[in-house]
Amino acid sequence: MALHGFNNLTKTLSFNMYDICFTRTREEREAYLAYIDEQYNAERLTKILNAVADIIGAHVLNVAKQDYIPQGSSVTMLVSEGPVEEAPDSSFEESPGPLPDHVVMHLDKSHITVHTYPEYHPDEGISTFRADIDVSTCGEISPLKALNYLIHSFDADIMTIDYRVRGFTRDTSGYKLFIDHEISSIQNYIPDQVRDRYQMIDVNVYQEHIFHTKCKLRAFDLNNYLFGYTKDQLSVEEQKEITRSVQWEMDELFYGTNMDAPFTAN
């Protein structure tokens, strides 16, 4: 569509993921947190955000990154308009975005950030790792095009995804436009093979251009939640108790509320 001046709409994608692990002892917990801290250190997170910038066609102006003690890291990128390497596609068809090596459009000054939060229960055997990523863009492109890549970059048990369009722009007659593309659900930007792996819930406020999707992994393999050993080293009763504890943690994170049930003690 023909606009009067620059497209002033701001589109923000917030991608939040959780990884969950059952750690029976303090030593297991410390080993898990050390593994997570190395796996998602500031250096690797910077590479992930650089790939996101490439996908949305941004030019990185500045990078601020930090590893924290004892755990956690964060990266913030200031980005600006970059060169268009392919013809812009203004159709905004709802579909999963590209993986790296595809630069499709450009954007004006904005930012991309990531923060990590390792965490554990003070009494029980649950440890969690959370990563929060925000991609905020101005102009035509939606940061949802980077969602496919972000999902592939993190092995998430739970994902919470928010997308919002703010502000307005004008067409050549001065008519205000509060959104410049059709969108019915964030799920339409997630590949079918990923959607099949997750239970999903949508909470959308269409008139406010606010879209929210929560995802919880469907299949459950206890071995994926043990650190340093496998379930065949546990008794059947221990397997049941740990499964109950981990699944309860996943449900609380998915539904965003504390659920009244006992956890497994160390």
Rank of each mutant, 00 (worst) to 15 (best):
L3S: 06
F6I: 11
N8M: 04
S14H: 15
D19Y: 13
I20P: 03
R24I: 12
T25K: 05
T25P: 02
E28H: 14
E28N: 13
A31Q: 11
Y32V: 06
Y32R: 06
I36C: 03
D37W: 04
Q39D: 12
Y40I: 02
A42Y: 00
R44W: 07
T46N: 02
T46C: 00
K47L: 04
L49P: 05
N50W: 09
A51V: 01
V52A: 05
A53S: 06
D54A: 08
I55G: 00
I56T: 10
A58K: 01
V60M: 05
L61T: 10
N62E: 11
N62C: 03
Q66A: 02
D67M: 00
Y68G: 00
I69L: 06
S74N: 03
S74L: 00
M77Q: 03
L78P: 00
V79I: 12
E81Y: 09
S90D: 13
F92C: 10
F92P: 07
F92N: 12
E93N: 13
E94N: 13
E94W: 07
P98T: 06
P98C: 03
L99F: 13
P100I: 12
D101L: 10
M105I: 14
K109L: 01
S110P: 00
V114D: 01
H115G: 01
T116N: 00
E119I: 04
E119A: 02
E119H: 05
P122F: 02
P122S: 07
P122R: 04
S127F: 06
I133W: 11
S136W: 03
S136D: 09
C138E: 14
G139Y: 05
I141Y: 05
L147E: 13
N148L: 07
Y149W: 08
L150V: 08
H152D: 15
A156I: 09
A156N: 08
D157K: 03
I158M: 00
M159Y: 09
R164C: 10
R166Q: 09
R170G: 01
D171F: 02
T172R: 10
G174D: 03
L177Y: 12
L177C: 07
D180E: 09
E182G: 06
E182C: 06
S185D: 11
I190S: 03
D192R: 14
D192L: 13
Q193S: 11
Q193G: 07
D196H: 09
Y198H: 04
Y198M: 04
V203F: 14
V205I: 15
Y206A: 15
Q207L: 12
H209Q: 14
K214A: 12
A219Y: 12
L222A: 10
N223W: 13
N224L: 03
F227I: 13
G228S: 08
Q233C: 09
L234F: 00
V236W: 09
Q239S: 05
Q239G: 04
Q239P: 04
I242K: 05
I242Q: 06
S245W: 06
W248D: 12
W248Q: 14
M250Q: 14
F254G: 02
G256A: 12
M259R: 15
M259N: 14
D260C: 08
D260K: 09
D260N: 13
A261Y: 10
A265G: 10
N266C: 03
